[in-house]
Design a protein around this nucleic acid. Structure first.
Length: 896
RNA sequence: GGGCUCGUAGCUCAGUUGGCUAGAGCGCUUGAUUGACGUUCAAGAGGUCACAGGUUCGAAUCCUGUCGAGCCCACCA
């Protein structure tokens, strides 16, 4: 670690730019990012592994805020587990994103007035790869800037050599198992990308369209796509439909733009006789339902719309060469002229669009490669049912399941020029060979980019070779990503693990590739809109880092959301986060500048510990418990010998609810520690009786808090740890602070809070009566057994600005404001107070007490309540009633 | 058509298995401050928990319905 040649005192405000790069470089150089088991120490090999693979960002572009959330959450999990003694592997990587990247280059070329065919396949591939690698480098810089503690020595790319090998091997194995097949089927075709797409790559949108009702021989049929009529080969009706019985099996004549055509009439169950006229035109080549009907009735299937979206020669002279939408216009005009158009009806219907180019998808018949999912999807569903695969939040388990249940075979071939080639050979007849043979040519198709992503949990570990990483780190632990790619990615990884039978080497069992899928939401702008290029509302995380620091960004992203919830990107919150880092910095500045010595609780002198000392330690203990509950997933370690920690945390936050943990930390650090204990400590440090203990506790609490916060805000905590506290071992690899249970003393925390309320009450009274802030006032406190109050006298004096405090003494009756805080009566005589206003105030307090008493009495008078409510609730009510009655009595005794 | 969220303070949201007088931050109002921090501190105002029923001793929380917002899936011409 770089030893600072800073002046003794830390600068007034925390300046992230002065630390971040330097600290990151030092971390990386020290080997902290690598798994401990990479080293030579025998003991490190016995640590339980904890693995997260980074969802590889697409090399299409720079990182956006969604990636930043992902990195903030994952790195927090990793840093926690690293400090907790796990053998952590956080494996970084990037995805070549075949179709997305290719379409970026397509767009570049379009600007130059060229198309990919002008370049040719080889040049296009080279150019795309160049583009990809450039972005890859940028992304890696950004991942570093986020403070991500991933192991760069294992950095992976879906198109590097090891991954290439894994992809080819996976394909071959699946083909041999019969899980990959090739055939001619109805697929989704994008005319702009000139490739087939998987079902989930098609985005369905409701949009306004026209339903054309056409005279069709003796029938009337309706269609939103009249241009397809030139590809029609049948009219279908329901078998039981009496209206059309006479036509079934016959041929009718239908006038077409290219002349009269003979069309078969078929009966098929797929037709709904209730809908429209009950007669449907059938275009087997260009419609899914019609394709099925065509198959059942052995219909011809002429291709009338080509791969580029223009009408083919088969469409007839009048339309050939026209784009499909132009053709539609022309055909509609013709229909009108011939009076064949009976009706035009506006209607909403769903249109499929390409998720990359946004062009309208054309269903068509095509030779493609498919993964057969019927068998493996059962296994994938079983993983979730058996509890081997959990979802956070749980509801996404349902989404996962439903999607799998409805899953059709997965089309994995693409006709784009960037990506993994299909490692197989095909002859003219469509026969397939995995090896080169006479008469067979290498397939020109590439693989769906999600095919390589689906292998990511094990292709990054060296699979198919059984090397050490694979044995040690697979299956992974948590897969953290956005819920929007459950279908694209999460399900595919599970399917591929099952399909390839990738077993856990340690147990020999087949398990999902990770035990938990932890999903975060979408990042939206401050007004709740999706980030989009067209709106121009995107936020560049790097810009925010420059403005507020990495810690501020990480803190904001990791703590202002609960799992699965969308997150609004609000710059005001970022300001707050930066302020929090600065607060922490200044707390440290005060402590390191004021206090010397060790943070060793064993050096405490128990006899002179104050309520505040014990109270703050208790609050610290609770905070640590909460944080651990959020990071520690008990279900994940329920395997023998896996838990390296001494205590299983109580359930104070739900696992993975880092937002909850963050709030607890924020509350403790700012409110309990800085606003109260630190102010009290200033008093205690001046008293030789308490100074020593206070110093120890300040140091201890600071060190502990730095540890607890480190997963969220790694830079500022490390900066303070090293430059403020002068620690030798860096915080990143220092053990997680263990807060022992003997600090769990709730009574002291309660008294702490009671004193706090007393001080707040005095402040309130001062403010009510417009007592100048500079002035000092007097106060009397009366309570049973008030030694603890008396002991706190100095602190109360300071924080409530008192010139005189009497504890336990009978206070004077006149011209004083009275309040009751629990069992403490607070009396503040004020110079400007008349006996009248004092009485008014007293009256109001009494009213409140009376109302409390009435309400509580009423509740206890209800037999059903007393009998049915749990006992502790009832005793609580009774205690409250007693307290309220005591309060009223005290107030009454104050009455003249 | 099927599924999933969500309606709580002016704004953004917490609110764990039903149980104190429903919380926080921002914003707003008032005030403070020469030693950790103005990237600060103190005090205050502000809510019929969307609406209507039901279950219960007790509902923001559970159930049903209504209204409103959003998301995902689906080959109906």
């Amino acid at each position: 670690m770089p030893k600072p040649q800073q002046p003794k005192e830390l600068p007034k405000a925390y300046d992230p730019t002065a630390y971040e790069d330097r600290i990151y470089a030092a971390w990386e150089k020290s080997g902290a990012f690598k798994p401990a088991s990479d080293g030579r120490k025998r003991a490190d090999k016995d640590r339980r592994p904890y693995t997260i693979i980074m969802p590889p960002p697409n090399v299409t572009d720079r990182l956006h805020c969604g990636h930043a959330v992902m990195l903030a959450l994952e790195d927090a999990l990793i840093r926690y587990h690293r400090k907790r003694g796990f053998d952590t592997l956080y494996l970084p990587g990037t995805d070549h994103a075949a179709i997305a990247t290719a379409s970026m280059v397509d767009k570049q070329l379009a600007k130059e007035g060229k198309g990919r065919h002008d370049l040719g396949r080889k040049k296009f591939e080279e150019r795309t790869m160049r583009y990809a690698l450039e972005n890859k480098r940028t992304i890696e810089e950004q991942v570093r800037a986020m403070g991500t503690s991933c192991d760069w020595s294992r950095n992976a790319f879906t198109m590097d050599e090891p991954r290439r090998g894994a992809v080819q091997e996976a394909f071959r194995r699946l083909y041999k198992k019969g899980l990959i097949y090739r055939g001619s089927y109805m697929v989704n075709w994008c005319p702009v990308c000139r490739t087939v797409l998987a079902d989930d790559e098609v985005e369905h949108q409701e949009q306004e369209g026209v339903l054309y009702h056409l005279a069709y021989g003796p029938f009337t049929v309706a269609t939103t796509r009249p241009e397809t009529m030139v590809g029609d080969t049948a009219v279908a009706v329901h078998p039981k439909d009496k209206r059309y019985k006479e036509f079934v099996g016959k041929t009718v004549e239908v006038p077409m733009i290219s002349g009269v055509r003979k069309i078969k009439v078929v009966a098929d169950d797929a037709v709904d006789p209730e809908y429209g006229t009950g007669a449907v035109k059938v275009t087997p080549f260009h419609d899914r339902t019609d394709y099925a009907i065509g198959g059942r009735h052995k219909l011809d299937a002429p291709e009338v719309i080509g791969e580029d979206g223009t009408m083919t020669a088969a469409a007839g002279k009048a339309l050939a060469g026209l784009d499909r939408f132009e053709a539609r216009k022309k055909l509609v005009a013709w229909l009108k002229r011939k009076k064949l158009l009976k009706k035009e009806e506006l209607m909403k219907h769903s249109v499929g669009r390409c998720y990359r180019s946004d062009d309208v998808i054309e269903p068509r018949i095509s030779d493609q490669w498919f993964v057969k999912v019927s068998d493996i999807k059962e296994q994938a569903i079983r993983f979730a049912e058996d509890g081997d695969l959990k979802f956070v939040p749980e509801r996404f388990g349902k989404t996962y399941r439903q999607w799998l249940e409805n899953l059709h075979d997965w089309c994995i071939s693409r006709q784009i020029w960037f990506g993994h080639p299909v490692p197989a050979f095909v002859n003219d007849k469509g026969d397939v060979s995995l090896t080169k043979k006479a008469g067979y040519k290498p397939s020109e198709d590439t693989l769906d980019t999600w095919f390589s992503s689906a292998l990511w949990p094990f292709s990054t570990m060296g699979w198919p070779k059984q090397i050490a990483d694979f044995k040690r780190f697979f299956p992974n632990d948590v897969l953290e990503t956005g819920y929007d790619i459950i279908f694209f990615w999460i399900t595919r990884m599970v399917l591929m693990t099952a399909a390839l039978d990738v077993k856990d080497e340690k147990t020999g069992q087949l398990k999902p590739p990770f035990h938990t899928a932890y999903l975060h939401g979408l990042v939206r702008d401050a007004r709740g809109r999706k980030f989009s290029k067209s709106l121009g509302n995107g936020v560049d995380p790097l810009e925010m880092i420059g403005k507020y620091g990495t810690d501020a960004l990480r803190w904001m992203l990791a703590t202002s959301t609960s799992p699965g919830g969308d997150l609004k990107f609000d710059e005001d919150r970022l300001v707050k986060s930066r302020n929090f880092a600065n607060k922490l910095w200044n707390i440290s500045r005060f402590i390191t500048g004021t206090v010397e010595g060790e943070a060793d609780l064993k050096l405490l002198r128990a006899e002179t510990l104050t309520t505040f000392d014990r109270g703050i330690l208790h609050k610290l203990y609770r905070t640590a418990q909460t944080v651990e509950a959020a990071f520690h997933d008990p279900a994940a370690y329920d395997k023998p010998g896996d838990v390296p920690t001494e205590s299983r945390p109580r359930q104070l936050a739900k696992p993975y609810d880092l937002g909850f943990a963050g709030n607890a930390l924020y509350e403790f650090v700012w409110s309990d520690f800085a606003d109260w204990y630190l102010e009290i400590a200033k008093v205690q440090l001046r008293n030789p009786e308490t100074a020593q203990n206070t110093a120890i506790i300040l140091k201890y609490a600071l060190e502990t808090v730095l540890g607890l916060l480190h997963p969220f805000v790694p830079f500022v905590t490390e900066a303070v740890w090293q430059d403020g506290l002068r620690k030798r071992e860096p915080l990143i690899t220092s053990p997680w602070p263990v807060v022992h249970e003997d600090l769990d003393q709730p009574e002291d925390a309660d008294r702490f809070d009671r004193i706090r309320e007393v001080i707040e009450t005095i402040r309130r009274i001062r403010a009510e009566h417009r007592t100048p802030a500079k002035s000092f006032v007097q106060a009397y406190l009366v309570a049973d057994g008030s030694a603890w109050l008396a002991e706190a006298g100095d602190a109360i004096n300071k924080l409530a600005r008192l010139s005189m405090l009497r504890v336990g003494q009978h206070p004077p009756k006149e011209e004083a404001a009275t309040a009751v805080v629990g069992d403490v009566t607070v009396v503040v005589p004020l110079a400007g107070l008349t006996s009248e206003t004092a009485a008014q105030r007293l009256q109001a307090e009494m009213e409140r007490a009376k109302m409390d008493i009435e309400r509580l009495k009423g509740r206890l008078a209800n037999k059903d309540y007393v009998e049915n409510a749990p006992k502790h609730i009832v005793t609580e009510t009774e205690a409250k009633l007693r307290e309220a009655e005591a309060a009223l009595a005290k107030l009454e005794s104050r009455q003249g």
